[in-house]
Design a protein around this nucleic acid. Structure first.
Lengths: 144, 144
DNA sequence: CTTTGATTATTAGCCTGCTAATCAATAATC
DNA sequence: GATTATTGATTAGCAGGCTAATAATCAAAG
């Protein structure tokens, strides 16, 4: 059997390399990829609970918790307990957390250009569509 | 800026979900994804050094070393020192390491079907091609 | 009102990736 | 031949993913 020509194998290789690449490029602005993905979610709307953010990002609660600790140490977010439910915490952006968005956007654009530079305009659209399909498959079937 | 619609973001999400999915399905046959990727390389040709395997898999030497320890504990491979160079070790499959291939193949086919079931035949080909392109971008030139 | 069950955050521990730093052995140079 | 540089494996430690297990709180029955 030709394992190496399967889509699973190919996708895994690209996945690892892409994550690694992201880490390197985002490290230049002193952030880690997991932190950035969480920040992106908070820039959409902060004040949510950890469990909600985990659901949105399709990752497990302990992962959110660990990543959050790093962001708090970096001064980008706060973890506040609110009166409505003593179990949960609400995650808010600090001014620094809001401000760092500009730096992330610039870096993210560069990263995006690096990847897309390898593809034609048509390929970009097709890739986006196919990835969306896969994402829907994974997020859909496993979050239920 | 719409981070969520970038290819980088999309790819990262799919990457994480795919890895997670692989771990779960391979866990059913008591293996981890990293171990399986290393085994696949050894099934092609064993007896190579760690540094060569690392190069082939595009991962760092410490990662190979750790994964290997797990495979040795599982009884799938051996790490032998040979006379030609006292620094290096040679990695060989045990009979169990050869035998487990059958189980992995069956599971891998199922995993592959699950993913490809979401796509048409044309989409599969295009996806493979685009992923190969990205792989070459990240890894440089390496034909399979 | 009390017991039982769900939910939320957290901790501990594992796997897979990384870099940096060691150590031993080989290769290269003077 | 002695010194220096390079190479290969390893260790330590971090990030990001996971599951399992706790503790605390809230909700629901009884």
């Amino acid at each position: 059997m030709k394992f190496h020509s399967t889509v699973s194998h190919l996708l895994s290789g690209v996945a690892t390399a892409h994550k690694s690449h992201l880490e390197r490029r985002l490290g230049e602005i002193s952030l880690h990829s997991g932190q950035v993905f969480l920040l992106m979610e908070l820039w959409k709307r902060d004040g949510r609970r950890q469990v909600d953010l985990a659901g949105e990002l399709n990752i497990a609660p302990p992962t959110i918790n660990k990543t959050l600790t790093g962001l708090i140490d970096g001064g980008y977010v706060t973890r506040d307990r609110v009166e409505d439910d003593a179990r949960s915490t609400r995650i808010f952006l600090t001014p620094a957390g809001v401000a760092v968005r500009e730096k992330v956007e610039a870096q993210w654009l560069e990263i995006e250009e690096e990847i897309l530079g390898e593809l034609t305009e048509a390929e970009r659209l097709i890739l986006s569509e196919l990835l969306s399909k896969l994402k829907h498959f994974y997020f859909g079937t496993e979050a239920e």
